[in-house]
Structures are given as C-alpha cells and as structure tokens.
C-alpha cells in the first residue's frame, strides 16, 4: 500500500510528468507525420484515378495523339515509350550486369572497384536532365537531329547504375561457400559466376532490371531534347519519337481540355505501370527471402 502510494507520488512529480508529457507529444507528432506522409500518397493516387479513369477507353490504345480540339488516343506515345524503354534496357542491362559482376566477384576489394562503386552511386542520383544534356551533346548535336536512338541511349544511361547496384548487392548476398565448392572441383571463375553465382542471385538481378524499367518508364527530362516528340505514329528510331511522359508534359501545359484529359489518362497509365513493376519486383525478392 505504501509502495503504491510512493509510486504514484513519484509519477506525479513534475519531472516525471514533464517527461511523460514530452513523450506523449513526440509520439503524437510521429503519428501525425506518418498520417501526413501517407495522406499525400492517398491524395495523389485518388486524384489520379478520379481524373484518369474518366478518359480511359479503347480509343486511348488504338488512336494516335489528336490535333488540338479533337478527340484521339495515345497509341503513338505508348508505342514510342515501349520501344525506347525496351531498347534502353537492352543497351543498359548487359553493361550494368557485367560491371556489377566485376564489383562483386573479380574486384571485390580492389581500388578500381571502390572508385567505380562511388562513381556509380553518383550516377544513380545524378539529375536526369543532365543526362539528357549529355546525350544531346554526344548524339543529337553531331547527328544534327533528334532521334529515338538518342532517347534510348539516354534511358540506357539511367538504367546502367541501377542495374550495377542491384547486381552487386545481390551477388554479394550469395554465400561464399558456394563459390568455394565450385572452386574446389576446379571450376574456373567465369563458369562459377555464370553457372552458380548468377543462378543463385537470379531473382535479385531480375528485380534490379524491373526496378530500372520502372524508373525509366516515367522519365521525362532526359527525353525532352533527345527523342523530342512526334505527332504521328513512327517506328523509325532515326526520327524524333513520341513518348508518354513527354506527351503528358506537352498536353498538360496546353489550354485544350481534350489534351489535358488525355494527359491525365496518360499519367494514370504511367503510374499504374510503374507501381505495378515495383510491386512485382518487390514480391520477387521477398518471396525468395521467406
């Protein structure tokens, strides 16, 4: 009885009360901050669904971008986006995987690797508009015209660091005992890497590629002055090529209601693609862990 009394007395003393109050306030702020952060996600996705779904129809996928004031679709933009994304991944992925392999296997501790690792991290978060300027200087300016190739190369430059990073991370996760077992039966390193390390890290590497696709399918800035845009359907990589993000940029800033509506629909398509890819990528690795 006496103990309880002293306990309550202690808990009621100003020092304890103050500490408890501060704790409650801090916790309250943490809850508020989380609700605030998630609130934006809900708000943005909500608005996107509300505005985007209204414009969704078959025409979006079967008709080209319309002239101002007319109805139409996004077929040429979707096609252009897919072509440049696929090409960007085809160019960027092999370089990324090979460089990541060097960092994790051949040169795990050497000087070159630590430099490359650092540079790769810088490239990973370099402003994408600067990548666009770079490709403009090396491809568009010498060739004298904008082209789908330049767009694909710009996207490849963004793909490389992402793939390097995930490939290295995933290969370092492969237990060394597997490597030692392979070495003990006389397998050369190249075979060990291709037949054993790659196979063990397969899901992780695929995740990296998916994340890279998710990243570039929404990129606008590097395409603005490499692939430019095109009103018409074009499969010619040597000519300016439309892409979904650039079309959204152009249409959203226009004064025409039909264009703005298409911009919202395009935005919804991109978001669904990007979120879908990142969720797929996440489920691949989490499935492997458990």
């Amino acid at each position: 009885m006496a103990i309880t009394a002293s306990k309550t007395a202690a808990l009621d003393s100003p020092l304890y009360a103050g500490r408890r109050r501060r704790n409650t306030i801090a916790k309250g702020m943490a809850y508020a901050a989380t609700i605030f952060g998630l609130g934006w996600l809900v708000l943005i996705l909500g608005v996107l669904l509300y505005k985007g779904i209204g414009g969704l129809s078959l025409a979006v996928f079967t008709e080209n971008t319309p002239p101002p004031g007319a109805a139409g679709g996004l077929l040429n933009a979707i096609m252009g986006s897919i072509m440049m994304t696929v090409l960007g991944v085809i160019i960027g992925t092999p370089i990324g995987i090979l460089a990541g392999t060097y960092l994790a296997e051949y040169g795990r501790h050497d000087k070159l690797s630590s430099v490359v690792r650092f540079i790769n991290d810088i490239l990973l978060s370099a402003p994408s508009i600067v990548i666009g300027l770079f490709v403009y200087e090396i491809l568009v300016a010498p060739m004298g015209h904008f082209s789908g190739w330049a767009g694909a190369v710009a996207l490849a430059v963004i793909v490389i660091p992402v793939v390097v990073r995930t490939t290295e991370d995933m290969l370092t996760l492969v237990p060394d005992t597997l490597r030692e077992a392979a070495a003990s039966i006389g397998l050369p390193r190249a075979h060990m890497i291709v037949r054993i390390a790659y196979r063990a890290a397969q899901a992780g590497i695929v995740t990296g590629i998916l994340l890279a696709i998710a990243r570039i399918s929404g990129e606008t800035a590097p395409l603005l002055f490499t692939a430019l845009n095109n009103q018409f359907f074009s499969m010619n990589m040597g000519a300016p090529m439309p892409s979904l993000p650039v079309v959204i940029f152009q249409f959203a800033l226009s004064p025409y209601a039909e264009w703005q509506k298409l911009a919202w629909t395009g935005a919804l398509l991109i978001t669904v693609t990007v979120l879908g890819l990142s969720i797929l990528a996440r489920s691949l690795t989490s499935g492997r862990k458990s």
Binding site: G37, L38, W40, L41, I44, V47, L48, A214, R215, S217, G218, E219, T220, A221, P245, I248, F249, A252, A263, W264, A267, I270, T271, V274, L275, S278, I279
Partner: peptide, 15 residues
C-alpha cells in the same frame, strides 16, 4: 512510403 518515392516526377507535376 517507398512507393511514394517511385511515382514518376511528372505525376507530381501534373497533380
């Protein structure tokens, strides 16, 4: 929270 990081910036722009 990480999905929020993955939304392309043009979506933030149009919104």
């Amino acid at each position: 929270i990480e999905l929020l990081a993955g939304i392309p910036s043009i979506i933030y722009g149009i919104w």
